[in-house]
């Protein structure tokens, strides 16, 4: 039944990872950058599962579960930050988000 090789799966995973990396590097909208980070995490998980399937061990799937939980936590924090950024700056352009200082501190000086 099986006739594809380990190389094929790893190449598919590498291509997906590179597509996510291109998305992070070229888009300027924060939401598209978060989407690309999700694509990269998914590709890394695919590589783990392929390695686990090659040796018929459950460790690859365990690592995918950890990546899944990490991606869920990351995307919830990231989207909360996106909401705050949009409410304060009225834009999602990463080049406009340069002021990390607190406005309350500005008032005290």
């Amino acid at each position: 039944m099986p006739s594809f090789t380990v190389h094929t799966v790893l190449i598919v995973s590498a291509v997906l990872f590179v597509l996510g990396l291109i998305g992070v590097l070229t888009r300027k909208n924060v939401i598209f950058m978060l989407i690309s980070v999700e694509i990269m995490l998914n590709a890394a998980g695919l590589a783990f599962v392929a390695a686990g399937a090659k040796w018929q061990q459950p460790d690859g799937q365990v690592m995918f579960l950890f990546i899944l939980a990490m991606a869920a936590a990351e995307v919830s924090i990231g989207l909360a930050l996106v909401l705050q950024i949009y409410h304060q700056h009225k834009t999602l352009d990463v080049e406009n988000i340069t002021a990390l200082k607190d406005e309350a501190v500005d008032e005290m000086v």
Partner: peptide
């Protein structure tokens, strides 16, 4: 990747029981 020796995948289903035990 292509320089490394190529291995054919032997697909056997690793069931959730083994995953959860691990």
């Amino acid at each position: 990747l292509l320089n490394a020796p190529d291995v054919t995948m032997h697909i056997t289903v690793v069931d959730p029981r083994k995953v959860s035990l691990s």
